[in-house]
């Protein structure tokens, strides 16, 4: 095919290269490529079950045992009287007692249900708001500082206002949870969107994505790691806010949550009940982290090759 001279060339002489037309094996045969592909991708060995146990489960178990041992030693040293600082075994008996009379399971379930519903509501509210703040420049300039401020404001500060507005009802708990979690979720999504490499939206544009398709298929999936970090922090804030609300707002239609159990222990000067409540709050936090957020995050990162699945 003869090449046509472009109009922009300024007096360029055209030189032709005569390519050799003898039959030679072309480089791009399938076998060569298949060989290259195999050589340049290395197989990843899956760690065995025993290695996994040794590397992932053993260290936290050792730490837990150490904590209990130190606790017992402090008790044995008699630094404080037993009714102020109960031993691990005392607390264990109280846990069994409270499970038997049903008050501990009730408190745990009440709090988890409230925290869960509140968190889901916070996600449903925070996600579209986060997207709006991240993608619409004027909105971001207007409310960005306010949202960062709300994230710093301890949500306990909303408890008195919530009690005055909603009385001793579930609405109080949910309001405080939302004020704690929504700003975190918004900020997580915003920073996730900010960290999307600029190349990705360009690729989306080249592929012909509409504004909405770009958000749905490129921006949101690319921002997922940051969004997940925001959700995780949002849950932490939900749970903390809920405990604060439950400790302060007791009675009415509030029901009996872990915060109420904690407050009951304080009112009765029963340190063992206080310890049980704290351990239960801690256990729920750890369980949600280990069973919900950690696996999701690990899966997302591993799929992108950002962290090796182990």
């Amino acid at each position: 095919m003869p090449a046509e001279p472009s109009a922009g060339t300024s007096g360029a002489g055209s030189t032709a290269v005569a390519a050799t037309s003898d039959k030679r094996p072309t480089i791009g045969d399938g076998g060569l490529e298949a060989g290259l592909d195999v050589l340049s991708t290395e197989p990843v060995a899956e760690p065995g079950l025993s290695t996994r146990w040794r590397k992932r489960l053993l260290p936290p178990l050792v730490a837990l045992v150490l904590v209990v041992v130190v606790w017992q030693l402090v008790v044995l040293a008699g630094v404080q009287p037993r009714y102020v600082l109960p031993s691990p075994l005392d607390v264990w008996y109280t846990i069994k007692e409270r499970i038997a009379d049903g008050s501990l399971p009730t408190a745990v379930l009440t709090s988890i249900e409230r925290g869960g519903v509140g968190f889901v509501a916070a996600v449903l509210i925070g996600t579209p708001l986060g997207l709006l703040v991240a993608r619409v420049r004027p909105v971001r300039t207007a409310v960005g500082p306010l949202i960062s401020g709300l994230q710093v404001l301890p949500s306990v500060a909303w408890v008195p206002a919530a009690i005055l507005w909603f009385g001793l009802s579930d609405a109080t708990a949910y309001f405080v949870i939302l004020m704690g979690a929504v700003p975190s979720i918004i900020n997580g999504l915003v920073s996730g969107v900010d960290q999307v490499p600029p190349l990705f939206p360009r690729v989306g544009a080249v592929l012909g994505a509409s504004r909405w398709a770009l958000v749905r298929h490129v921006i949101l999936p690319a921002a997922l790691p940051g969004y997940l970090a925001g959700l995780r922090q949002g849950w932490a804030f939900s749970w903390r806010s809920l405990m604060a609300a439950e400790i302060i707002a007791i009675g009415g239609e509030m029901g009996f949550g872990l915060g109420a159990l904690l407050q009951q222990g304080r009112d009765l000067s029963d340190m063992q009940v206080v310890m049980v409540a704290i351990l239960a709050i801690l256990a729920v936090g750890i369980a949600v982290e280990l069973c919900v957020f950690a696996p999701i995050e690990r899966g997302v990162l591993a799929r992108r090759g950002l962290a090796r699945a182990s």
Partner: peptide, 8 residues
């Protein structure tokens, strides 16, 4: 664009 070459 300052110069151009044709290649067979």
């Amino acid at each position: 664009i300052v110069r151009e070459w044709a290649v067979d």
